[in-house]
């Protein structure tokens, strides 16, 4: 039997598209964990929340799920800002973020999941949009729009955020707060306000990531858990807090997972992220683009 080149190339393409989507899922954690040092393990739960909002709006009102997620951005932003305020007052100010802050986010993750189960049940939900069933065929290669559109949106999101962080005053302040909070205060910027804005943005990305998720696959409340390992693996792999690193890490993981599920079976894919995470932590904890 000769090696199935066509299968390999299609798996690579699928992996790149998947990785692009993972970048959108991870970017929120790259900001909160990588830049602000807030270990928001509840991020995947907010992504699932975003998926359900996209689901409700598109099934009841017939709106496009991705459009809905963009409309929901302010709501997610203020949700994030509110969570940061609670986190700051209860943990950061008291210097207890290590143990209790983690437990707090874990509790949030769990509460969100259980509430979604109580409201929607554990059935898989999906959305319909005209592009979900279409596939572009170039020669022997498949480009399903269901994956291609999330990839494009995700790259736009990441590009936009990178420009925001490097070109605007607030964005630069966010990058600065990661390095030296005190110096930021000397520049007449309130570090707490900056962090609140940044955390709000990080949660806001969950809205878009959630809509992309439900475009790609049917969603039920506990799907988010599978993403915790992936998200942190990518975040660490890419070097904490670096958005280009996040994209590279996400693409690598996407390709690895796609190859694994093509050649070994899809039920093994979740284990890839953990292997990646452990290897990165053991050999290069600073990540690919680490400072």
């Amino acid at each position: 039997m000769d090696f199935p080149v066509e299968l390999l190339i299609n798996a690579l393409i699928a992996g790149i598209l998947l990785g692009g989507f993972y970048a959108a899922v991870t970017v929120g954690v790259s900001i909160s964990f990588g830049i602000l040092d807030i270990v928001n393990i509840a991020h995947p739960a907010f992504i699932i929340l975003g998926s359900y909002i996209a689901y409700i709006a598109s099934s009841r009102l017939g709106l496009d799920p991705i459009l809905v997620s963009i409309l929901a951005l302010p709501a997610f932003y203020y949700l994030g800002a509110a969570i940061y305020q609670v986190y700051y007052v209860s943990f950061e100010k008291r210097g207890q973020e290590a143990l209790r802050g983690l437990a707090f986010f874990f509790g949030l993750l769990f509460v969100t999941e259980v509430v979604l189960i109580l409201v929607f049940g554990v059935d898989y939900r999906y959305v319909s949009a005209p592009y979900i069933d279409e596939t572009i065929r170039i020669g022997m290669f498949d480009l399903p729009l269901r994956m291609l559109i999330p990839f494009i949106i995700s790259m736009l999101l990441l590009g936009g955020l990178q420009l925001y962080l490097t070109r605007t005053y607030t964005g630069r302040a966010i990058m600065a707060v990661a390095q030296d909070q005190f110096a930021l205060q000397l520049m007449a910027a309130d570090p707490i306000r900056i962090k609140r804005i940044a955390f709000g943005i990080s949660i806001a990305t969950a809205s878009i990531a959630g809509a992309l998720l439900i475009v790609i696959q049917p969603v039920e409340p506990s799907v988010g858990r599978e993403y915790i390992g992936r998200v942190f693996a990518i975040c660490v792999l890419g070097g904490l807090g670096s958005l280009p690193g996040t994209v590279i890490g996400a693409l690598l993981l996407g390709i690895m997972e796609s190859l694994t599920s093509t050649f070994y079976g899809p039920s093994w894919a979740p284990a890839v992220a953990f292997g990646f995470l452990l290897l990165t932590l053991a050999f290069r904890p600073a990540g690919i683009m680490g400072r």
């Binding site: 270990v39 983690l102 693996a233 660490v236 992220a273």
Partner: peptide
């Protein structure tokens, strides 16, 4: 310490 916490989360999935 955070990495240990994250690794245990992922450990359950794997």
């Amino acid at each position: 310490g955070v990495f240990f916490a994250i690794a245990t989360l992922a450990l359950a999935v794997v």
